Computed example of a mutant assay.
Amino acid sequence: MKVQKVRDLTLIDLDQEKTIVVACDSCGGIGMKEYDVLKVSPFVTGKYTARVALFEILCSGAEVVCLANTICNEMEVTGKKIIAGIEEELEEAGIGKIVLTGSTEENFATFATGFGVTAVGIVENKNLKVNNVKQDALLITIGKPKVGEEVLKSEKGGIAGYQLIKTLLGSERVYELVPVGSKGILYEANQLAENNNMQLVLHSGIQIDIHKSAGPSTVVVAAMEEALFYQMDLPGSIEVIGMLRHVKR
């Protein structure tokens, strides 16, 4: 059995035709408990933490088959609110609640909110969009980098959404999709170039902040055929940031 690590993904060969894809995320100090730093409903904590792991799996081209939540708090009331947030995110992603499983902390009192999530997906190898850039590609960003209270105040139009991701995944001319988290757009673009043995060429005059944290994957970087981009009418906050080019030997 072959296991490999690519970015934040673990890829496990299931057989010659399919791959298991695993991703995870965690969140601490965000909730309504005494020592939480950012005071928001645990519902929000569950929703956006689940979003990170779901985006990682879906952007790889895989179908989510399990979402495990490890809640470091009691079921009543924190756990139930976190789970409700996860369930809403699954609904927005078009994924049934049947994939959801998890655990809570019932033995000890807790004074800050803690929560982790692990997502597991399965993909046919022909549909796997990981290290999949075989030719020069245009790099675009979908969404705007937001973190903390910015996410809570933002409109949906400023955050990468599931429907657009699914649309892009349906095209062979879209080579790879990478969710952006706390390390920012430039970091993920560099990782994309390195993993595909390509050179990153950034455009001048980029308007979007490529260094800022994108929190719960509010941005996705897409590598795609340049001609396709100009044929598509993509909604939302889209910006061209550069190219991936073959490294000349």
Rank of each mutant, 00 (worst) to 15 (best):
Q4F: 07
L9S: 00
L11W: 09
D13H: 11
D13N: 14
E17T: 14
E17P: 05
K18Y: 15
A23K: 00
C24H: 14
C24L: 12
S26C: 13
G29H: 04
G31R: 02
K33L: 10
Y35I: 02
L38R: 04
S41K: 06
V44W: 12
Y48F: 12
V52N: 03
A53S: 11
L54H: 08
G61K: 05
G61Y: 02
G61D: 07
C66R: 15
N69G: 15
N73M: 01
E74R: 12
E76W: 09
K80E: 13
E88W: 08
E88M: 08
L90P: 09
E91I: 15
A93H: 09
G94D: 01
G94L: 10
S103H: 08
S103F: 13
N107Y: 03
F111V: 05
G114E: 06
F115R: 00
F115S: 04
V117C: 07
A119L: 07
G121E: 03
V123W: 03
N127D: 13
L128N: 04
N131M: 12
L138V: 01
L139C: 04
I142Y: 10
G143Y: 10
E149F: 15
V151A: 07
L152A: 02
S154P: 00
K156Y: 09
G157M: 14
G157N: 05
I159F: 12
L164C: 08
T167F: 14
S171Q: 14
S171M: 07
E172A: 13
Y175S: 03
V178S: 10
G181A: 07
G181C: 08
G181P: 00
S182H: 07
K183V: 00
L186C: 02
N190T: 14
N190Q: 15
Q191G: 06
L192E: 02
E194L: 10
M198A: 05
V201M: 14
G205F: 00
Q207N: 15
I208V: 15
D209P: 10
I210S: 00
H211D: 14
K212W: 10
S213W: 06
S213K: 03
G215L: 02
V220C: 11
A222N: 11
E226M: 11
F229T: 06
Q231R: 11
D233W: 15
G236Q: 14
E239T: 10
M243A: 06
L244W: 04
L244V: 01
R245I: 02
